[in-house]
Amino acid sequence: MKANVLIRLNEDVIDAAGRVLKQRLVELGFAEVRAARIGKLIELDIESADQEGTRERISQMCDRLLINPDIENFTVLFEEKK
């Protein structure tokens, strides 16, 4: 199954890159943009049919490597079969 791990910076962490992005969007005419924050998307192809078990495994992956909890949090999104 395919799982996407969405990694976001915690709210209290300043996202310098996001600030620059927001500024450029405004300068390009998208004045309605009030803020932008940049995260990461990790696409995983996992050999398993057990979604809840996979969710637990991905949670372990995040704890051990994928995120730094001091500054990041994560959300797991499963891709629907096409």
Binding site: V13, I14, A16, A17, V20, N68, D70, I71
Partner: peptide, 8 residues
């Protein structure tokens, strides 16, 4: 943790 320099 060491973050990206805010100056970019």
């Amino acid at each position: 943790v060491l973050l990206q320099n805010p100056s970019m």
